[in-house]
């Protein structure tokens, strides 16, 4: 799952070398902490947050079969 988010984020931003994803595993939920260059924040959030919302939607779908919950946190 880390790979999925990392690859998508790298494709969205202008500075792919500054993308990092840190998975924090909880009991039921894994939080994926996404860090990007400050000037790329808008790229991963999108207009009215639509890009971030789409990433969260597909993360929800990706966890269904695995019976796991994944959430995305975008860190500055």
């Amino acid at each position: 799952m880390k790979e999925l988010i990392e690859q998508i984020a790298k494709a969205l931003v202008d500075n792919p070398d500054q993308v990092s994803v840190n998975p924090v595993e909880g009991e039921q939920t894994t939080v994926l902490e996404l860090r990007v260059a400050p000037n790329d924040l808008g790229k991963v959030i999108g207009k009215q947050g639509r890009t971030a919302r789409s990433i969260r939607t597909i993360l929800g779908a990706a966890g269904m079969k695995l019976r796991k919950r994944f959430t995305l946190e975008i860190l500055e």
Binding site: M1, Q7, I58, A61, M64
Partner: peptide, 17 residues
């Protein structure tokens, strides 16, 4: 990354048929 790469990675990560 092209759209097929994104979709293949999604299908694989989610274990979807």
């Amino acid at each position: 990354m092209r759209s097929e790469d994104l979709l293949s990675l999604f299908v694989k990560s989610a274990s979807l048929k």
